[in-house]
Computed example of a mutant assay.
Amino acid sequence: MEHSSLAGRIFRGAALTLILLFFMFPIVWIFLMSFQTNEQILRIPPRILFEPTLSNYEALISGQLRTAAGNLQISFMRNLFNSVVLSSAAVLLALLLGVPAAYAFARFKFKLGETIAFTLLSFRFAPPLLVLLPLSLYYQELGLNDTYFGIVWVYQLIALPLILWIVRGYFEDISPDIEHAYRLAGHSWREAFTHIAVPLAGPGIAAAGLLSFIFCWNNFVFALILASADKQPVTVGALAFVTASGIQYGQIAAAIVLSVTPTLLLALYAQRYLVEGLSLGAVKG
């Protein structure tokens, strides 16, 4: 039995290692490409050992994209800053609107409540091109076209339904008896919401906020149509790397590393909140 158990552990360890290598290999390869020139990247056969260079990152930071036809001005760092501002503001707005709405849908039953909730969820599944034409017309009338607020507001189509439905499930898992006991002590429903419900659903709110941030960060179509170059996020700004004189693979790899780093760091920081979400089952009624 001991030999079979040891063999099983070795097999599972080997299988997990192979799976990890399979999924991590593209990420590692992109990271290595970011320190290579185009000549090194296109070399056949490719080499693992090479002389690293920081020229790709220097080009991104300085805004000088080196091509065969000469230097090309890009604004990658500006696009990266735009992504941070737009995604963060969109998620904060969605949390301010979505968390109270999720609590209302979880705790109170009212006419057409489920219909309204499903309608909000349907916005998440609607193709962006379905709403872009009327939105662009409305934005021109309202003066919101090519503005940060306009992009943040349209990002609510991505973030708000996600936060509403995820956080609603966490609120439903919390026993209302805890809030009733708190209110019997003389506290208002608003205090019960802010001091009891929100802290208990904190891991769910963090998870929903993280997922919303990633989806907003990765959005391409909304900012491409509704924003000019100085307000576009990094997903749209990446188009500058495909030029008439060729594709700058090393600088594209460096741009991928820089654009993925903020969401990766956020995910690593928020993972402790995701683990805490396992304890919500202890308060189910």
Rank of each mutant, 00 (worst) to 15 (best):
S136V: 10
Y148C: 04
F110V: 00
I178T: 04
N79K: 05
I166P: 02
G98Y: 06
V167F: 05
Y148H: 07
F123H: 06
F105E: 05
H180P: 01
Q73K: 14
L164F: 08
G113M: 09
V84W: 14
A159T: 05
L142M: 14
L130F: 13
I174N: 06
G70W: 10
S122R: 07
P128W: 01
L160I: 04
L72E: 11
F76R: 10
I163N: 06
K111V: 05
W165T: 00
F110C: 00
A106L: 12
L144T: 07
L92W: 08
L129Y: 14
I174P: 06
A104Y: 14
Y139N: 05
F123D: 02
N82P: 15
A106Q: 10
V99A: 05
L72P: 04
F81V: 09
T67S: 10
L97D: 02
L120P: 06
F108Q: 10
A126V: 00
R78Y: 07
E179F: 13
G70F: 12
L93R: 07
L162C: 03
P161L: 06
E179R: 05
A117Q: 14
A89H: 08
L144K: 12
F125G: 05
R78A: 13
L160H: 02
Y155R: 08
W153Y: 09
K111R: 13
P100V: 04
Q140H: 10
L92K: 07
L164A: 03
I151F: 11
L129P: 15
A89R: 08
T115H: 08
E141T: 09
T119W: 12
E141V: 09
Y103W: 15
L112V: 02
P161F: 03
S87R: 10
N145K: 13
L93T: 02
Y170D: 01
P134Q: 01
